[in-house]
Design a protein around this nucleic acid. Structure first.
Length: 571
RNA sequence: GCCCGAGUAGCUCAGCUGGAUAGAGCAACCGCCUUCUAAGCGGUAGGUCAUGCGUUCGAAUCGCAUCUCGGGUACCA
């Protein structure tokens, strides 16, 4: 990366200056003390370093330090200048030329780091109850999770994506009871869900069980004797609906892990026993309590209720231990902020059972508000529900994925459905896709002959197909040189992709990819407006075609391979 | 009360491991299509970085306090 190249030059120069005793009282330089930044004013250079922080060690004024360091830099063909305590750096021809060459050479792998510490990661996300369709909030975790998985894989990690199915709690019984009411309604009985608010909470009164009831009656005469049969039927239906939607939404799971199998395998009981053996369980009010407060939780938690049944947490502990025993180096969970209380207790249990709680990384995501006609609409499972499916139908997969990924996970996402529906220029995903389509269009035009619509006269194509192939498949380093004066910013933006990937992967923040892609599109649109690609000057045309192709490559990589949003050839 | 998160331009948000004049998109206003996609580009205007105090040569960024908003605070899942 150019910024790494630059800081190395600076650090080397500092070391030499210290050795020569030119940096006052400064005796040693610790690597990483100085940070590379972008100059406020692009005229200063591409990158800059502020050496003011060295002043208190050297006891010399910052500008003098900067000038001393400058003398020791091996400048090659790059430009350096000093303003105040800043050393500014402007990339020379070689760095820029090599960067474009790198894009051609690496193509789909451009931006992949050379050697990272590879981790075996289990990424768990969505993990919805199989009791109804996904709501909008699930869409955020689905989009972000799948983008993060793509990103971490690209970065070089081994990523296993898992969906935990909460198919064992009391909610499954509720589901069966609710289906029973829908079936009786189908059979013509005058029944309905309770109107009393508290009573009603024992049911799922959403319309979505009506088609399930109809389907049940296709193969059954009436209600079964055992409600469990209905629970299982509804559960299977809901799971199937959820899986279909995930596939549609380009979200891929390597495994769906059923909570029920966890219970049946005895792993939950085993965990409870181990916790008991560790002496971290005590009895109170007829229930078993886990002393999680010993490990930083604010209070102890019930692990076995007075009625003898397990809590949700109990199974979750067993699940996380199971993940660790499957040999993953790192567990990453994406959870809604409404689960934040769970982090401490799950970590506590991991530690109590002798595992490293730092292996678990929980990404807490703030929730999604739906905005309809300027009013926020509360998301509830039981009424006013806008499902993820409805949203995707309205807005499309691409826009939904992009919008759900484009904000910092720490901020509440306002999803304005009216705005997203308009598909106007307020929609950043179209802006980016348009840039890609535009690049493709140029590449098509350059090898097409032109026909005058009035005279029917034909003009030969500006470039033959072979000439274009020669650029894209057998790219020569020097090709891009004629554009260096006019396309500096664009080339530097392409270069930035490498650091965006790095930061985004390491900080698990996928929104930075969305931002980057918008910035690259913007640079490209500017370049397009300022420079005609197809022209008489053949060398210049080849150079610009090479750049257009580079932009298309990086946009495509980011859109399709990371964000899983289509990169259209035409729009 | 306690625990998370947020508060930056009219709106939606970047910037937060302290550094140059606080940035972008949308909305507003002014320009740019006989030529590769105007779904685009260029420009103008728009700020008490919630508030106060502190640390520092230097604070949107760090610390303390206060205010506002969202979420959590179950022997539900």
């Amino acid at each position: 990366m150019i910024r790494d190249y630059f800081i190395k030059k600076i650090e080397l120069a500092i070391q030499k200056a210290i050795n020569d005793g030119k940096l006052g009282q400064m005796a040693e330089y610790k690597q990483g003390t100085l940070a590379v930044e972008r100059p406020k004013n692009a005229d200063f250079g591409d990158y800059a370093v502020n050496v003011s922080s060295l002043a208190r060690f050297a006891k010399i004024a910052p500008p003098q330090i900067a000038n001393t360091i400058l003398e020791y830099i091996d400048k090659e063909d790059n430009e350096y200048n000093v303003i105040g305590g800043f050393i500014n750096f402007k990339s020379g021809k070689n760095l820029l030329v090599n960067l474009v060459y790198e894009i051609f050479k690496k193509n789909k792998d451009f931006g992949k780091p050379e050697n990272i510490e590879k981790e075996k990661i289990l990424l768990e996300y969505v993990s919805a109850n199989p009791t109804g369709p996904f709501h909008i909030g699930h869409g955020r975790w689905a989009a972000m999770g799948s983008v993060l998985a793509n990103l971490l894989k690209f970065y070089g990690h081994e990523v296993y994506q898992e969906f935990y199915i909460n198919d064992a709690g009391s909610q499954i019984q509720k589901l069966g009871n609710s289906l029973a009411i829908r079936i009786r309604q189908e059979l013509g009985e005058d029944v309905d869900f309770p109107t009393d608010e508290i009573e009603r909470k024992n049911y799922y009164p959403g319309d979505y069980l009506i088609p399930v009831a109809k389907k049940y009656l296709e193969t059954h005469k009436g209600l079964p004797e055992n409600i469990k049969e209905l629970s299982d039927f509804a559960k299977a239906e809901m799971e199937a609906i959820q899986k279909d939607l995930l596939e549609n939404f380009k979200v891929h799971f390597d495994n769906f892990y059923s909570e029920l199998t966890l219970h049946n395998s005895g792993k939950v009981e085993e965990c409870v026993n181990k916790l008991k053996a560790s002496g971290k369980i005590y009895q109170k009010d007829g229930a078993d309590w886990f002393k999680s407060s010993d490990y930083g939780d604010d209070q102890d938690r019930v692990i076995k209720k007075a009625d003898g049944s397990n809590t949700y947490l109990t199974a979750d502990i067993a699940y996380h231990i199971d993940k660790l025993e499957r040999g993953f180096d790192r567990l990453i969970n994406i959870w809604g902020a409404d689960h934040h209380g769970y982090v401490a207790r799950v970590k506590a249990s991991i530690e109590a059972l002798g595992y490293d709680p730092n292996k678990l990384e929980v990404l807490l995501g703030q929730l999604v508000n739906l905005v309809i006609n300027g009013n926020e609409v509360r998301m509830g499972k039981r009424k006013n529900m806008v499902t993820l499916e409805d949203l995707i139908d309205e807005v499309g997969v691409d826009a939904t994925r992009f919008w759900m990924s484009m904000r910092n996970i720490d901020t509440t996402l306002d999803f304005d459905i009216e705005l997203a529906k308009t598909n106007s220029d307020e929609n950043p995903v179209f802006y980016v896709q348009y840039a890609h389509a535009r690049a493709c269009s140029i590449l098509r035009h350059v090898i097409s002959e032109k026909i005058n619509s009035e005279t029917g006269e034909k003009t030969p194509s500006p470039m033959t197909e072979n000439e274009l192939k020669e650029i894209t498949e057998n790219y020569q380093k020097d090709t891009v040189i004629p554009t260096l004066d006019t396309a500096r910013k664009l080339i530097l933006k392409l270069e930035e992709y490498k650091s965006v990937i790095k930061n985004s992967a390491e900080q698990r923040q996928v929104y930075t990819i969305c931002r980057y892609v918008q910035e690259l599109a913007s640079e490209f649109h500017s370049f397009y407006n300022a420079n005609r690609v197809i022209s008489e000057d053949k060398q210049m045309m080849k150079a610009r075609i090479a750049l257009v192709y580079s932009v298309k490559t990086v946009l495509r990589n980011a859109l399709e391979d990371i964000l899983a949003v289509t990169a259209p050839e035409r729009m």
